[in-house]
Design a protein around this nucleic acid. Structure first.
Length: 939
RNA sequence: GCCCGAGUGGUGGAAUGGUAGACGCGAUGGACUCAAAAUCCAUUGGUAGCAAUACCGUGUCGGUUCAAGUCCGACCUCGGGCACCA
């Protein structure tokens, strides 16, 4: 058999018979499968594409055979930087490069036999498509959802272009390695942050995988908290901060504002060290967004000399700093700093010597009635040289602990700690290293038969010399002094108070956990949520604060200073301002020019083309200028699934009729890398269209699944530089498309990454060859063979269920098992073979069609119905089950399905090896699970 | 740091709480062949044993259960996403 000819033959058949073209048919139930449309790069198709396309192809083929009207389209997401760069370098028009790349991709995909409906194919770069992208942008504009704003962008001075954050990671341009700078530009923005709550809510209407939902939720970044107003001393102005922990308000010891905060200029008259501040601001400006968002321990900042805030509750003066760890873009661009309970504030306070006030105490142990309150210490002695800590080993009396003790009348905590160390260990030559945060501990003392609630202060002391005096132990103090290392402590010190104490004094960070409030007047003794509620109520009553929800999600910067994108259809008129291009003049077409290289000043290349720029105002007819920026890559992919429903419509972006029939995408497959931004943009776009009544569903996608990556041999990413990229064409040439498809479906869990293996691929080819050879056994017969009848029914069920759950690997495994069984038979009937081929067809469509034809088994499989199974055929009348004695398998027995438990138990007890294990033992219990297992418990 | 995943033979990977390792790859032995390839048959988690069989075994430690790869708790390692987000 010539595989290549067969594959070509069936691909031609499907094309000429329009087998996979979908047509609206109200009498048939629809199903919409969508794969992320590819970016047709010069590199060609990747084996990763093959994996997801084959998976959805298999599902689509099966669904069609099950009688659904399946929409399974494909197109091209072709605008964007890579093609533009390629075009500039090779001096060809991006339009030409795109066309060439699409041709390559298309022929590669066709060779795989994917059942796409090619009649619906389009590219985002087609004027007939981007006309409607522009039209929809105008809907945003007309509904006040688009606005212009000045924004800092990443700018590469060498490439003369704006870069996305992704393209400028590490602070350098991804392509040329030049240091990226910040440049302020006017940009069109879409009000996506207005949709934060709706985008969050909408997730409930989807069946996305949990990890995809989480990614969306994280990106939206909702946080509940409060705004608090701090009066600036000597002014009428307030400095408002946002915090998620208003309950820690009493712990505020300083405030920080972002270097860009407008108050700095507003109050420059009051500030004495303006020069220093301007210097710092300039340093910050040099940093890229990337550098600023790196988590660094070493905080920098400048104290504002002359500007002081007043604590709204205590009336104390609070110093204000500027620092780049506070972002202008989040919250109010100003924070109240609580160094005791926030790591960043803690780091900053340590560096600049600012007070740290503890207002939360971690609680350990279980509270109990009639507790006696007292204050105590935990003292940890450290031998720096050996890096060991002194513990008291109380053995069975209390395990391994540090030195502990109760603070006496008139004594402070530190004195107490030094005294206790001396009394219990005799060491006196010590110095204090660290005082930890206080801990609120509940415990029961057996020797005193009393519950205690202590407020304990942990200390860390360094041992300077082993000078030791006589210790002063009391009667009941029986322990061994032992110096041990960190590991032993982590393992053996189990008392929560002592464990936490050790953590506090050795790691030395802020106390960020939950706890009960102290030093907080009205909040004292309250837990987190009660305290938050109480303080917010108070702040609101006094009108010095209010509850507030914040989102990380920001408005969408919708412009790029590039050539190869959709022109923004707006015209600027001196008289009328920004005016939309009239609908009948759409699309605003990209000019066919030779000059599309970037300009020096950051303007779009379109700005240099007078014929494009100069126009007249659609409103007043005076001379006017076109917007020269283009849309981002994300634009065209934000609505493409809608266009697939009605791709040739030149009156509307999609007809109501098509929308009503095809509805939502039922199953959307894509890479995990698009689970945040693309998916969010697409949902936002759709929700907007829904809100203005243009689409019938609020959420565009019912299910979103993500496939795992295919890695090169050795488990590394395939890349040009490693030279381990597998070209699907080469594989198809040598092994055939069906082998490649089968292998990629068999390689492992569809959602997990998988490692490419040529040997594994070869195994799948061998399997398909066996399927071909199985044909030699075919004899007449339109019913299943008696010997394999049950296996066939079971396999139908298994393959059907597994494919429904995207478990292609186990579906194939079941088919292999059935093949092995059939191979042992002398003959199989046409019916056997036909069903077998039908089950395999979604994964290996060419070879199965050919065999079906060759052995004259029936109409083409693509026009046949999916096999069904008979429930009654799934179970055997007899089954082998295991017999365990005390949970260990000792024998297997044959049972009939209609055996009652008594019979099974008897069979089990008399099984040869079981008898031996029962000898001399008393049977305590016998568990019989019908059809599964028997477990005999003996003593 | 936070949020997801995942740790099972030589290897890719299977196992609604019920015989761990299905299926594939590789390996070993054999058949066919002058020979090789292809194909077919057999074996293939480890240790002991001629064998029957026994013991051990799903990252580590503990727990629940008649029964744990699977459930619960603590930890370790790897992968991914997010991140001075107040």
């Amino acid at each position: 058999m010539d595989i290549k000819k067969i594959e070509k033959k069936w691909q031609d058949y499907w094309r000429s018979h329009h087998t996979f073209e979908a047509h609206i048919d109200p009498n048939k139930e629809k199903y919409y499968y969508l794969v992320e449309f590819p970016y047709p790069s010069g590199a060609g198709l990747h084996v990763g594409h093959v994996r997801s396309y084959t998976a959805l192809d298999a599902l689509a083929r099966k669904k069609r055979m099950m009688g659904y009207n399946v929409l399974f389209p494909i197109g091209w997401d072709a605008f964007g930087a890579p093609t533009e760069q390629y075009a500039i370098k090779n001096h060809i028009h991006p339009k030409v490069a795109t066309k060439k790349n699409i041709e390559t991709f298309k022929s590669q995909i066709e060779k795989l036999g994917i059942s796409f409906d090619w009649s619906r194919e389009f590219s985002t770069t087609d004027p007939e498509y981007y006309k409607w992208t522009q039209w929809q942008f105008l809907q945003f504009f007309k509904h006040g959802m688009a606005y212009k704003a000045r924004k800092n962008i990443n700018w590469c001075p060498k490439c003369k272009t704006g870069l996305s954050n992704e393209d400028s990671s590490g602070g350098v341009c991804e392509r040329c390695g030049t240091q990226v700078v910040q440049k302020e530009k006017e940009q069109w923005m879409l009000r996506m942050s207005d949709y934060a709550e709706q985008l969050l809510d909408g997730l409930d209407d989807t069946k996305f995988q949990e990890k995809i939902k989480t990614a969306q939720i994280n990106w939206i970044g909702k946080s509940k908290g409060a705004e608090v107003d701090f009066v600036l001393k000597g002014t009428d102005e307030k400095l408002t901060v946002y915090t998620t922990r208003p309950d820690t308000l009493y712990g505020v010891t300083f405030m920080v504002i972002a270097p860009e905060h407008p108050y700095i200029d507003l109050y420059s008259g009051l500030i004495h060290n303006m020069n220093e501040i301007i210097d710092y601001r300039e340093q910050t400006n040099k940093k890229t967004e990337f550098e600023r968002t790196q988590l660094v321990k070493d905080k920098t900042g400048v104290k504002i000399d002359g500007l002081v805030a007043i604590h709204p509750l205590t009336g104390k003066e609070i110093p204000i700093y500027i620092s780049d760890y506070v972002m202008m873009s989040y919250g109010t661009g100003a924070i109240m700093a609580v160094p005791a309970h926030d790591q960043r504030d803690f780091d900053f306070a340590k560096k600049y010597g600012i007070d740290i006030i503890q207002v939360l105490e971690e609680e350990t142990g279980e509270p109990h009635e009639n507790e006696k309150k007292k204050n105590s210490i935990v003292a940890i002695l450290w031998d720096e040289e050996k890096d060991q800590y002194l513990t008291l080993n109380w053995k069975e009396l209390g395990g391994r602990l540090f030195i502990g003790g109760t603070i006496q009348e008139g004594e402070d905590a530190l004195t107490c700690a030094i005294r206790e160390i001396k009394e219990e260990t005799g060491y006196t030559d010590i110095s204090l290293v660290q005082t930890g945060f206080k801990i609120n501990h509940h415990y029961y003392a057996y020797n005193k038969d009393q519950y205690f609630n202590v407020e304990a202060t942990p200390f860390l002391f360094r041992l300077n010399s082993s000078k030791q005096e006589e210790s002063a132990l009391e009667e009941d103090e029986k322990f061994e002094l032992e110096w041990v290392d960190k590991e032993t402590i982590n393992r053996e010190v189990v008392d929560m108070l002592h464990q936490k104490s050790f953590q506090y004094v050795t790691t030395g960070g802020a106390m960020c956990g939950e706890g009960i409030h102290i030093h907080s007047e009205m909040l004292d003794a309250l837990y987190k949520q009660e305290a938050i509620d109480k303080i917010i109520a108070y702040l609101e009553e006094k009108q010095i604060g209010r509850q507030k929800t914040n989102y990380k999600l920001q408005d969408w910067i919708f412009t790029r200073q590039r050539f190869w994108g959709e022109p923004i259809p707006l015209i600027y008129c001196e008289e009328c301002g920004w005016v939309p291009v009239p609908e009948e003049d759409l699309p605003v077409v990209l000019p066919d020019v030779a000059e599309y290289e970037p300009t020096d000043d950051g303007e779009s290349p379109l700005a240099r083309i007078p014929e494009f720029v100069n126009t007249t105002c659609p409103k007043c007819g005076r001379p006017a200028r076109r917007e020269t920026d283009t849309m981002p890559n994300w634009a065209g992919s934000s609505w493409y699934w809608l266009r697939y429903m009605d791709p040739h419509n030149d009156k509307e972006f999609v007809s109501k009729y098509a929308l009503k029939y095809w509805g939502k995408v039922d199953w959307y497959n894509g890479g995990m890398e698009h689970a945040t931004r693309h998916l969010l943009y697409a949902r936002f776009w759709n929700q907007f269209l829904y809100n203005i009544g243009l689409v019938p569903n609020k959420e565009p996608f019912e299910t979103r699944a993500a496939h795992g990556m295919i890695l090169g041999e050795g488990g590394v990413k395939m890349s040009k530089s490693l030279g381990n990229v597998i070209n699907p064409d080469d594989i198809v040439d040598v092994y055939g498309a069906d082998s490649l498809r089968t292998y990629e479906m068999f390689i492992g869990d569809y959602e997990k990454e998988a490692v490419w293996s040529e040997q594994g691929l070869n195994g799948c080819r061998r399997y398909l060859e066996k399927v071909i050879r199985l044909g030699n056994k075919v004899v007449k017969g339109d019913t299943y063979s008696k010997n394999t009848e049950k296996d066939i029914h079971r396999t139908i069920k298994k393959v059907t269920d597994d494919m429904d759950n995207s478990k292609f690997n186990t579906a194939l495994s079941a088919l292999m098992i059935l093949l092995n069984k059939m191979e042992k038979e002398e003959h199989i009937t046409k019916a056997d073979y036909r069903t077998y081929l039908q089950l395999l067809n979604p994964i290996a469509p060419h070879i199965t069609e050919e065999l079906n034809e060759q052995y004259q088994l029936g109409n083409p499989i693509c026009e046949s119905s999916w096999p069904t199974y008979d429930e009654a055929m799934l179970e055997d009348s007899e089954k082998e089950i295991a017999v365990q004695v005390n949970g260990k398998v000792r024998a297997t027995i044959m049972v009939n399905m209609d055996d009652d438990e008594k019979t099974i138990e008897e069979k089990a007890k008399t099984a040869e090896n079981v008898v031996r294990h029962l000898q001399g033992k008393e049977i305590v219990k016998v568990i019989v699970i019908k059809g599964k297992i028997v477990n005999i418990v003996v003593k």
